[in-house]
Write a protein that binds this DNA or RNA. Structure first.
Length: 548
RNA sequence: GCGCCUGUAGCUCAGCUGGAUAGAGCAGCCGCCUCCUAAGCGGCAGGCCACAGGUUCGACUCCUGUCAGGCGCACCA
């Protein structure tokens, strides 16, 4: 980032000097090949047309000025007019001192400028334990929240509890039904009930607490409330085990009782966007590009899920969130256009609402698919999976793929402590560094307190500089990942860095180096690498053990 | 029928708002531990970026169409 920023400022000054406008399509990025230098800029090419000049000619003009910069060692013009820039060794050396100084906060940026963002995720109906699909959403949501915080946003996380609808009723009925069976009533299994073992457990517990349950008038309500609380507690525990935390748990019921839904209806009516027809209340979402209008209040007087969802989002805006990110299962994608329509109807900017769709997780064991269905009661719960493969491995797996692609989650593969499993590869890189530091202490080799310019002056080899250049890119990755709401980019970066470290480690002696100045400098370098790996892993919520 | 997502090496996937010779891991083959952790490193091989057009200095990336897979199209949640 520092290299990129440095070039940006330098180039902007030069362009202004030439009396030209800064072209929006300028890119400054590390080139694929080392022979093209540390950074490549396409500025001369994108500037050529508006300036009505030959790109290579412009390039040499810019190069002449750029080379005067003391931080820049070399500028070359290549191909159709690329500027290939090489920074001085001193410029790179100082990166280590910067990382050391910034520590935990190295990599954090001010992209968000304190913008208030809400990330709402998981929000699974509290009708049963979380399964692995929820786990993916949980990992992505949690990591996204960490990432956005790191990128300078004021992030609030929330779980929306659908505790008001029909599903809750069915849940209560399911528990009551099991309770009756336990009490000896001979009943056939109904079709659309929840029938997992957890329902029986809950029924058993309710009966223990209320021996006279079946005689109560409010037996159904008792069952429903008890089940809701039990299941919600279970969900909270499972999430905590998965290192996922929501700052706020928002109840749908609280919305309904507070009259928020009616308030939202009125807003829509006033805007002429809600109308009565066939005894139902409709929302004219077609005004905003939806393919049909949607019902808010059914003709039987009950509310649709959509209605309370609009009210919920209205409420988010009332709480001052400038950006609302929802993380949904991809099977809800048809719901996105109408929700966008609702946001627009409420008079909020289009880009203040975003949805990340999480594609299906295919749970496999040794390549064979395991079926999942909450209703049928045969599923692998998140709890089981986390216990089985470990939190780190599970999280890293979920975050090693962009969220809109399908994910094969093979329990055996994720469990393997081998090269098939990138999470260990990354953790091992850090553990190796820690090991070297331990070894240094054993051998009585002093690890420098501070990476001073004198110590760093021993850094001169390409292998060392390459590592540093990669460290400098961490902030760029954070920037890009946050902008695109794509935490998986962090996983990939951290793997790349681990790979560079392993390679460096294998090919360069550290404690065994001949020169003690080199040893000191390399120890500083390794500490920086370790710091960046840890900061990166922290963003995906994976631990960095000191030994493995 | 309409809409959304996906299609990149044998397998699992990256590829940032279009940039130089398309990358990684695994699997395969060949090497590397008297030395800081071999959960590692180096090398070889592997590609019509689903297909066909278009846009431009330049396309895996953008547009159109076709094909294939997944998902969704309720006064369900």
């Amino acid at each position: 980032m520092r290299a990129k920023n440095h070039l940006y400022t330098a180039l902007q000054a030069i362009v202004a000097d030439l009396d030209l406008e800064w072209p929006a399509r300028t890119t400054i990025e590390p080139p694929k090949e080392k022979k093209f230098g540390d950074m490549a800029a396409n500025i001369a090419m994108v500037l050529a047309k508006p300036a009505k000049r030959n790109p290579r000619e412009l390039a040499s003009l810019i190069a002449e000025k750029l080379i005067e910069d003391p931080m820049i060692d070399n500028v070359e013009i290549a191909g159709p007019g690329f500027l290939n820039i090489t920074f001085s060794v001193d410029f790179w050396r100082s990166t280590i001192a910067i990382i050391e100084e910034r520590g935990e906060s190295f990599g954090s940026i001010d992209q968000g400028k304190g913008k208030k963002v809400q990330v709402e995720y998981v929000s699974a109906n509290p009708t049963g334990p979380l399964h692995i699909g929820h786990g993916r959403g949980a990992a992505v949501g949690d990591s996204l929240a960490r990432l956005l915080r790191f990128a300078g946003y004021d992030v609030h996380t929330e779980y929306y509890i659908n505790d008001a609808g029909r599903q809750m009723l069915i849940l209560g009925q399911s528990v009551l039904f099991r309770a009756r069976q336990i009490e000896g009533e001979d009943l056939p299994d109904p079709e659309d009930f929840y029938r997992g073992d957890y329902i029986k457990d809950i029924a058993q517990e309710v009966l223990e607490q209320h021996p006279d349950l079946l005689k109560k008038d409010d037996a159904l309500e008792v069952c429903r409330e008890y089940a809701l609380n039990q299941i919600l507690d279970g969900i909270k525990t499972d999430l905590a085990e998965f290192r996922v935390e929501h700052q706020n748990w928002f109840s749908e019921r609280s919305l309904v009782t507070a009259g928020a839904v009616e308030k939202t209806f009125n807003r829509l009516k006033e805007a002429g966007l809600a109308f009565e027809q066939d005894g139902a209340l409709w929302f004219r979402t077609t005004e905003f590009g939806d393919d049909k209008d949607r019902v808010l209040r059914k003709s039987d007087g009950s509310l649709t899920y959509f209605a309370s969802d609009i009210a919920y989002h209205d409420n988010k805006y009332d709480r001052g969130f400038e950006l609302n990110v929802d993380i949904w299962g991809a099977d809800h994608h048809g719901y996105v256009p109408r929700m966008r329509a609702a946001v627009e109807a409420l008079g909020k900017p289009k880009d203040s609402f975003d949805v990340i769709l999480i594609q299906l997780v295919n749970l496999l064991r040794n390549g064979e698919q395991i079926a999942m269905s909450t209703r049928a009661g045969q599923f692998d719960t998140l709890e089981e999976v986390v216990k089985d493969v470990g939190c780190d491995a599970a999280r890293f797996m979920f975050l090693s793929r962009k969220s809109d692609s399908h994910l094969d989650f093979d329990l055996e593969l994720v469990k393997q402590k081998s090269m098939d499993n990138p999470v260990y590869y990354v953790q091992y890189a850090n553990a190796r560094i820690c090991s070297v530091l331990r070894k240094a202490a054993e051998r009585g080799i002093a690890v420098p307190e501070k990476a001073t310019p004198e110590i760093l002056s021993a850094i001169k080899e390409a292998s060392e500089l390459d590592l540093i250049k990669l460290l400098d890119q961490f902030e760029d990755v954070v920037d890009s990942a946050a902008r695109q709401l794509a935490p998986h980019q962090i996983s990939f970066y951290v793997q790349e860095l681990a790979s560079a470290l392993h390679s460096f480690y294998a090919n360069n002696p550290i404690l065994n180096a001949k020169d003690e100045n080199v040893i000191a400098a390399r120890l500083c370098l390794l500490q920086s690498v370790s710091k960046v790996i840890r900061n990166g892993l922290n963003l995906v919520g994976v631990e960095a053990p000191e030994s493995m």
